[in-house]
């Protein structure tokens, strides 16, 4: 299964306070462990939300809002994509991560939907069939 792992923002990350050499080394080593274990599919660090744009949807309206955004704790400062056997493995890997921030911080693990989920919801295959047909119809319309 694939998971996306979000390193949540802090006041420091939002202020673009650079990491110490020590933290960079620790993170480098950790990343190497992820690669060695064969679970790392990708990952990036994100610039503070002062660089960000947000597009707000309301019915037919689209409003563009410039960063920075105020709800620091809800923002993402970086992410990885991992392929792991299950959530337990993902949790164990995250526990081994050095604290990526100078202050208390959070890392969220969000599993991606995979084929196994469709099968789980849809033991008879009918729902998936319907979904596939629906997508085909949409694609035919768009074509």
């Amino acid at each position: 299964m694939k998971v996306i792992v979000f390193v949540k923002a802090t006041a420091d990350s939002e202020a673009a306070v650079p990491p110490t050499a020590e933290l960079l080394t620790a993170m480098g080593n950790y990343n190497e462990e992820l690669v060695k274990a064969g679970i790392m599919l990708g990952g990036e660090g994100l610039k503070p939300s002062s660089f960000a744009k947000r597009v707000h949807f309301d019915g037919p309206n689209r409003t563009v809002i410039d960063g920075p955004f105020t709800e620091t704790k809800e923002l993402v400062a970086g992410f990885w994509i991992w392929e792991v056997r299950n959530m337990e493995e993902a949790v164990e890997w995250v526990k081994r991560c050095p604290n990526p921030m100078f202050t208390a911080s959070d890392i969220d693990i969000r599993p991606m939907y995979g084929m196994e989920d469709y099968k789980e919801w849809d033991k008879e295959g009918g729902w998936l069939e319907q979904e596939v047909k629906l997508r085909e119809q949409i694609e035919a319309k768009n074509a």
Binding site: V35, A37, G38, I39, M40, E83, R85, M115, E116, K119
Partner: peptide, 16 residues
Amino acid sequence: YLRLSLCEEALRLARM
């Protein structure tokens, strides 16, 4: 679908 996990194990081995 259980067997798909074998694909993931093989990919993991190759990445290692």
